[in-house]
Each structure stands twice: as C-alpha cells, then as structure tokens.
Nucleic acid binder design. Structure first.
Lengths: 199, 199
DNA sequence: TCCGATTTGTCGGGTAACCGACCCAAGGGC
DNA sequence: GCCCTTGGGTCGGTTACCCGACAAATCGGA
C-alpha cells in the first residue's frame, strides 16, 4: 500500500475497486448514513479488516468516490493533451460550474459531507491546474509567480464562483457565467492593478 | 487451498471465480486452443503464477467450466430437496439427455476434450446419485447393494444411453427416450434377473 | 435507567497472491 | 544452420489479505 491510488499491488487495487463499487451501489440503494461498513465489505466480498487497511472510515471512501466522479467528468470533457489555453479553460470552467450546480441544486443530502465535497473538487481542480501551469513554465519560465500559489488561487476562485452562482445567480446562464469567470482569469486582476484609480 | 472448490479462503475462491469467468469469455471469443494462459490471467487481473496454484493446465480449467455448467443446469431443473423418486429421476434423465445432445450435436469442437467432458458429466452424475441413494439408505437400510457401486453403475448407464441416443437414435424423441431409460432404472434388471428365461 | 444487540475499530498469526526472474521447448524468419 | 520471439512452467522472497477475537462505542427497547 505504498503508492495508494493507481500503481500499487494488484490486490490493493482490486480491493479498492471492489469497495468503491459496492459503496456506489449501496449509496443509491440505501444512502450514506444507512449503510454500514459490513454492508460494504460483504458486498465487495472482502474482509472487514481490509476496509480499514485502505480507509479510516466511510467518509474517506465517500470522498474518493466524489473525487473519482469529478475526475472522470473532466477527462471526458477535456482532450487528453489539454493545457493552459483559452479554449480548454473555457471547457474547464463550464464543467466545474455544471458539476457544482448539479450537486448543490438538489438540497445537499447530508450536511456533514458538504465540506468534504468542496474540498475534493477544489483539490482535484488544483492538481489539474498545477499540471497545466507546470508545463507552461517549462516553455517560458520568465514568470515571477509561484506555480503552486497560482494554481491554488485559481482553483479557489473558480470554485467560489461556481458555488455562488449555483446558489444565487438564478438569472445567469451557464454560458454567461463561464464568460465572466473566463474573462477574470485571462484579462485578470492585472488590468485593474495597472490603474487602480481608473474609475 | 485445502478444500478446493467452495469453502476455502476468500482469496482462493475469488481467484478461481475470476479465472473461470475470463476463461468462459475467451472461450467464445477465440476458442480453446487459441487462448494462452497469459490471456486468461491478464483478463482476470491475476498473476500468472496464481493460475498454476489452482490448475495444472488449461484443460483442468476447461473441465471445471464444463462441470460447473452441468451442475448449474441440474440445480435449475431439480428442486433443492430432490431425491431418489420417480418424478425426480425423470427430470434428471431428461436433463442429462438434452445436455449430452447439446454438446454432441455440434461436431465436437476439439477431439482432445471429448473424454474430459464425458468424465465430468458422469462424475457429476455419480455424486448426485450417491447423495440421493445415501439419504434413501438412511431411512430404510435393509439394502444389500453398495451405494457407491449402485450410483456408479447408474451414472454410467444413464450417460451411456444419452450418448448413444444423441448419436444415432435420430427418430426417438426426448420424452420417449426418457421413458425407456426411466423404465430400466425403476423396473430394472431385477425383473429379468428373476426370470432370465422368460422369453 | 440499564441491558442486550449491533457496529466500530484494532490486532496477531497465518496464508494466498504478488512479483520478478529463471529455464526450457517450440516455432519462424534471416 | 542460427537467432529471436513466444508461451509454458517453476521458484524464492515479499506483501496484502484473511480470519477470529477483542474492547469500546453506539443504539433501541424493556
């Protein structure tokens, strides 16, 4: 269980796969709070102890599940060679907007899982953006800004916009909102900073 | 791997299940001779060494597959509490007849697997009959005949009839043949033995 | 309230499965 | 002929998993 997630032992990968699969099934059958650890492990045909070897509790599995769903969504929308370019940014923003709305739209199922979900989305977003920016830096490394910080702030800004929009921007369409967010990211704060007293 | 087949370690059972499943899929995709051990293990996501921990070669897996199919067929046709009774015997005979015909009907795929198939069916049949006869013996144990021998001979006789019928009894229907076999088993050799010179 | 049942989380000992490497045999192409 | 690939089969060292049992926590009903 050294490199958790993908390139680990065959058995390790299989166990995680089986557990997550059972979890998803049980999620729609009886919901998060109703299911027990034993429910999950019984269905996965895995010893209960094995569960604790991979996850500290149910919430960790829920988080992996949410994260995985979001990641697959991004992989489906974006080309495999996507990077920090206007067109790909547009797609990314729109995907996040819709994903956040689809989970905020329905009254949040359990209040406890809410911050978990937010964290997952932001984190996934952060890693994607850092990868993009990292490759950018490789070509023209005359940048002063720190890549990690840039990725972090961008992920928060996109997510924040999505959250706010999905809650209270009833009249604004996805396209419109995507445009606004995109504009901020590309035109950016630099414009304002250059002339703070413009207005 | 102490009690091979059912009640063994979870991991053991899972491996066998995965391997057999992959085998069945590959069987209809590229056939028996074409598939390699690596094909099977790759698809099952199991280490190649694990295969040899369970089966000496491909043929053993084929045999398990055939045997399993036949067993499931019997379980579907017969009630769970079936025993040595005229009605259940009828069903058993008919099932064997049709099963044998369904595999002899098509020109036998590989000549090498032919005896393997015969052995599997007879063996499965033998164990079922022995179970039936064993329970019978528990109630009225005035029998002189050995249960194992009885079961063995019965299994051979039923299978033999089925094999012969599926090959060359073109005009005889399943019902008709079932009746003949059933008559022999119930009326039996006892009739003739009592009066060998009757005719 | 207390009690029994269920669930959670942990642990030690044992083992099936993993991994990588090995040798050998059977083709197939040069 | 030769080499090179491909598949079969084995082995030693390592590891993730299994099993059963345990105590602590949680919960629902008497």
């Amino acid at each position: 269980m050294k490199d958790v997630e993908n390139n680990a032992d065959r058995r390790s990968r299989r166990s995680r796969r089986l557990l997550e699969q059972s979890f998803v099934e049980l999620m729609r059958e009886k919901g998060f709070t109703a299911m027990t650890i034993r429910d999950i492990t019984d269905r996965a045909d895995v010893h209960r102890g094995t569960f604790y070897a991979h996850y500290p509790d149910k919430f960790a599995l829920l988080e992996q599940s949410i994260r995985g769903k979001f990641r697959r969504l991004l992989e489906r929308e974006l080309p495999p060679d996507a990077g920090w370019e206007p067109e790909h940014l547009r797609v990314l923003i729109r995907t996040v907007l819709e994903h956040v709305r689809s989970l905020y739209g329905r009254c949040s199922p359990v209040a406890a899982v809410d911050p978990l979900f937010e964290q997952s989305v932001r984190d996934e977003l952060f890693h994607l953006l850092r990868r993009w920016l990292g490759r950018l830096r490789a070509t023209r490394d005359d940048r002063q800004v720190d890549v990690d910080t840039m990725a972090l702030m961008t992920s928060w800004s996109i997510f924040g916009a999505a959250a706010q929009w999905s809650k209270s921007y009833e009249g604004v369409s996805v396209e419109e909102m995507t445009g606004r967010v995109h504009a901020v990211l590309t035109e950016g704060a630099g414009r304002f900073a250059a002339d703070p007293f413009r207005d």
